[in-house]
């Protein structure tokens, strides 16, 4: 199979269906490009070069153009990440309320700093701008769930919980 053919066959029918549903919301397909990447990312964790080419092909965009957007947004992952993404709010309200302590605890417990993935591939820790949860500062978002306010010990307990 040529690289071209391989790339064309990368997306599953389900993914294509979901992407097409999104695309139908817009008069042009490129408007759905980022949404398409998110659909794929939700299933596969991150967007490899080949996946990017596959999505670009499906939505009919020049790959570099789609990658321009993909690399612009901080929540499209163009590098491998862990099974869970821990977004630590690093904006001012959480900082006031001790976000640094949560970050230190994460570094200590998981042995990884901002932007890194644990050796067992379980967690990727990413600093993130204000999560819109300033009344629950300091806040952390693990995958799609918001947690806060958190003490270091509560954070520990969260990391220990049943996540695979």
């Amino acid at each position: 199979m040529s690289r071209d053919e391989k790339i064309r066959s990368m997306l599953t029918e389900e993914e294509k269906g979901m992407i097409d549903e999104e695309l139908s919301h817009y008069p042009t397909t490129r408007a759905g490009g980022i949404e398409a990447l998110k659909i794929v990312q939700r299933r596969r964790g991150w967007i490899s070069d080949d996946l990017l080419l596959a999505v670009a092909h499906h939505v009919g965009m020049a790959p570099a153009e789609l990658d321009r957007s993909a690399t612009f947004y901080n929540l499209i992952f163009r590098r491998p990440i862990g099974r869970h993404v821990v977004l630590v709010c690093d904006s001012v309200s959480c900082w006031l309320m001790g976000a640094d302590r949560l970050r230190d605890r994460l570094r200590h417990r998981l042995g990884v700093g901002a932007g890194e993935t644990t050796a067992d591939g379980r967690f990727t820790v990413l600093p993130n701008v204000c999560l819109g949860a300033c009344d629950r500062a300091p806040a952390v978002m693990i995958d799609e769930t918001l947690h806060g306010p958190l003490t270091e010990d509560e954070l520990d307990r969260l990391l220990d919980s049943q996540m695979p």
């Binding site: 020049a62 790959p63 570099a64 153009e65 990658d67 321009r68 690399t71 612009f72």
Partner: peptide
């Protein structure tokens, strides 16, 4: 189509 700007 093959030259662009990436990142921000």
């Amino acid at each position: 189509e093959d030259l662009n700007v990436f990142g921000s």
